[in-house]
Design a protein around this nucleic acid. Structure first.
Lengths: 129, 129
DNA sequence: TTAGTGTTATATATAATGTATAACAGATAG
DNA sequence: CTATCTGTTATACATTATATATAACACTAA
């Protein structure tokens, strides 16, 4: 299954969908031009209303990850990475600062975070060309 | 000022308070045993209701960052870092995975994230003993 | 005695999240 | 041409999260 939803999560469902698809793109599971399930199909599949799926799709489109073609379908969009890189770097600063602060209070060495990130990169980029 | 609140933020006020105090502890601005402003004082200071501050304090106490002493005040608690380290590492995996995934889609090299983290560590640990 | 502490209770308001149902209008496949 | 599928819009509703307002409680500390 492309996505699995945790209904008990503190994270909104549409955010879980959004994050799942972003990870799918990063891992290469979803490639440029691939079609996504319709809002109804995906909604039924994961047990969620079509509007919730639509909310995730709208968000993903606004972020440049997908392209919604009315009455045709929704497709993965490679887009211009560099164009969105600055935006990402600006937005990730706050959350990352909080995460690092918490790590420092727990006396977790920076090397641990480096390793976690490296492991995630390896895992994501492992299934590429 | 210890804290500044962005009322237009998507992040809840009590979360901003919580994160600000965690960062304060990480940077050494807030040390073990230091007293925090009362819920009323801090609330007035940043233009927020005392219950909102109390919500942040309760959360921080549940996470082991502070100790609330009824009718006496609230104090920074060094606590046992190792005791909470595992919990943190478990919880940070999800958000970090999302962040890394997004970085990969934007073709941002892992070294960039490493550098950001190093910079934050340096900044936080720079003001220590 | 007085002021200050976190806490509890009650009430209210707003926004966010999610569901339900129906209809629209064009695309697409049979 | 017809039937199905597409994202979209509209309406309504329910629940939860967030935040404020006000008052009182019970104890601490100056």
């Amino acid at each position: 299954m492309l996505l699995s939803i945790d209904f008990g999560s503190d994270q909104p469902i549409y955010m879980q969908i959004r994050n799942g698809i972003v990870t799918g793109i990063a891992s290469g599971t979803l490639k440029d031009g691939d079609s996504l399930p319709s809002v109804r199909t995906l909604g039924t599949e994961i047990g969620v209303n079509l509007h919730t799926v639509n909310k995730a799709y709208q968000l993903l489109q606004s972020e440049g990850f997908i392209e919604i073609q009315r009455r045709r379908g929704t497709f993965i969009k490679a887009g211009d990475a560099a164009k969105h890189a600055a935006e990402f770097l600006k937005n990730c600063g706050g959350p990352l600062k909080t995460l690092v602060s918490e790590a420092v209070t727990r006396r977790i060495d920076r090397a641990v975070l480096h390793q976690m990130i490296d492991h995630m990169y390896d895992e994501l980029e492992g299934n590429k060309s």
